[in-house]
Amino acid sequence: MSLVFSALASVDGYTVDTSGSFDWAAPDEEVHAAVNARERGIGTYLYGRRMFETMRVWQDMGGDGAPDVIREYADIWRSADKIVYSSSLTGVTTPRTTIEPVFDPSAVRALVEAAPGDVSIGGPTLAAEAFRAGLVDEVVLYLVPVSVGGGTSALPTDLMLSLDLQEEHAFPSGTVMLRYRVTAPAA
């Protein structure tokens, strides 16, 4: 199985802008359906505290009246296990969620090797630790046609990675999906 880092990002490489907003990254229905198709194979999500706090809204989303793509993603998210790496969280309010006080690369490597499906690492801060440890196998970026000029970088800015393009898809909205295999992780 693989450890996959996936993110919606601006064309200049940021997941949030300088004010911390990511409203500009909201996917349209077609992009959301593509994300859902890719996420169906994820059995476990690895999050830092901030990313978990952003994502936990999916526990209650997708009720009656919600668009099909929203209901589908909510079901995908709820059915996966979640591991949150945080020294400040003492409890969680979502099922299938555990807290680990520290990110342990050896434990993550063992988890990925034993997983029945792919494992996703969410959030650029936690993912940077996994990139530095040479754990990330695949990068999937959905580049949104906007340049935000700064914020939180999707990929580590202090690390060189060699990537091999595996797939690309341009959506009518202008968003482009790029899927890479990591060929030379951090040294």
Rank of each mutant, 00 (worst) to 15 (best):
Pro156Lys: 07
Asp81Ile: 04
Gly149Val: 14
Ile121Asp: 01
Leu143Tyr: 13
Val4Lys: 10
Leu165Lys: 09
Ser87Arg: 15
Gly134Ile: 06
Tyr14Val: 00
Ala187Asn: 04
Leu111Gln: 15
Ser88Trp: 11
Val84Gly: 03
Gly63Ala: 11
Asp12Asn: 13
Ala107Gly: 10
Leu126Ala: 05
Gly123Val: 11
Met51Asn: 01
Ile42His: 08
Arg179Gln: 15
Ser2Gln: 11
Thr90Glu: 14
Leu178Met: 11
Thr93Gln: 10
Ala7Glu: 05
Ser2Val: 08
Met51Lys: 00
Ala114Thr: 15
Leu161His: 13
Tyr73Cys: 02
Ala110Val: 10
Val140Lys: 01
Ala34Pro: 02
Asp137Trp: 09
Asp158Phe: 09
Thr15Gly: 04
Thr152Leu: 12
Ile76Leu: 13
Val148Glu: 02
Ala37Lys: 12
Leu3Met: 15
Val139Leu: 13
Ala133Met: 12
Arg78Val: 12
Gly65His: 11
Thr97Trp: 10
Leu165Asn: 09
Thr54Val: 12
Gly63Pro: 11
Glu30Ala: 14
Phe52Leu: 02
Pro67Thr: 05
Phe52Met: 09
Leu155Asp: 11
Ala114Pro: 13
Ile42Tyr: 09
Pro116Ala: 15
Met177Thr: 09
Val146His: 05
Ile121Ser: 04
Leu159Asn: 08
Val146Ile: 10
Ile83Pro: 06
Trp77Glu: 01
Glu72Asn: 03
Val92Phe: 07
Arg181Cys: 06
Met61Trp: 14
Thr175Met: 01
Asp68Arg: 11
Leu159Gln: 13
Leu135Ile: 08
Thr175Tyr: 02
Val57Gln: 06
Val84Tyr: 01
Ile70Cys: 03
Met55Gln: 08
Ser153Leu: 01
Asp158Ser: 09
Ser120Leu: 07
Arg49Pro: 00
Ala37His: 13
Gly117Ile: 12
Ala74Thr: 03
Tyr85Cys: 03
Ala114Asn: 13
Glu138Phe: 12
Arg56His: 12
Glu138Val: 12
Val146Thr: 13
Gly63Thr: 11
Glu29Trp: 01
Leu163Pro: 05
Pro145Asp: 07
Ser120His: 07
Leu3Lys: 06
Ile70Pro: 00
Ser87Glu: 12
Gly174Thr: 09
